[in-house]
Amino acid sequence: MKKLINDPADVVKEGLQGIAAAHADRVRVMTDPNVIVRADAPVQGKVGLVSGGGSGHEPMHGGFVGMGMLDAACPGEVFTSPTPDQMLAATKAVDGGAGVLHIVKNYTGDVLNFEMAADLARDEKIEVEAVVIDDDVAVQDSLYTAGRRGVGTTVLAEKICGAAAEQRRSLAEVAGLCRKVNANGRSMGMALTSCIVPAAGNPTFELGPAEMEIGIGIHGEPGRERRQMAPAREVVEMLATPIVEDLPFRSGDRVLAFVNSMGGTPLIELYVLYNDLRKFLAARGIEPVRTLIGPYITSLEMQGCSITLLKLDEELTALWDAPVDTPGLRWGA
């Protein structure tokens, strides 16, 4: 294992210390339990937005704490759900009297821990709503499993709900908006290489030099199928076809197209992929009116990408365009 770390056991702690030092103008970092919180939290009268999950997906979620996005993020150990005491501390730290929304990715551990945290927060008379994001179309038998995983749409939901909360919309409205984003977003990912969890020290899965895993999860969970390497345009077909068919996205739809790196894939390859995605969508009469290209929901150093499409209307487009000022996403502010 070659990694730029000190002790594998200190990766999360030292990463948090680095975030605190680098972005002290926007966030502060609480320890014991670990929470990244907006520097000016709690914002009075504003719905507080809390998310969280295992570490190793940076910039999600800690990099999205700031004006116009999250109020707090709870980082767990690498690829391990954070715990309810973290989520409770985050909820209390951001409660400005208008209630708190938990944005939860659909993994059994995350869901159970956030449920316990919501119970604890309600015991302390804080109004909490939770929305579970489950947008990964790679999971086919969702009735017979823990359901679809939460992936790329989470980033878009955090941005859009963050903008709505800044407009002082109510908890019910912001939660409703989060469900709307989840209902209109679909994603699928793929991997060229495995990630290496620092504490484990070896690759999570084995992939031959000429193979790729289509439908990979952001923790290296197996996907739909293993295939021989193919050109970018064919990879785009493999990912975008099930996405478009699932919602379905139709001719005339206006979408936000999000091409994401799993961590190890360079930006130029993401643009090659977007160029093919643009043609794929044009052939179906789908118009990408907004784009997000880059590493935003990663899986450590995994090479690979994911594609997310979100069907936009005027409301979602305006909220997407609204100012945001976080370490990981910043415009208009």
Partner: peptide, 14 residues
Amino acid sequence: VSTVGGAGGPLYGT
């Protein structure tokens, strides 16, 4: 609940 994480924490904690 506060130290295990994952699904095991809330389940054994409960």
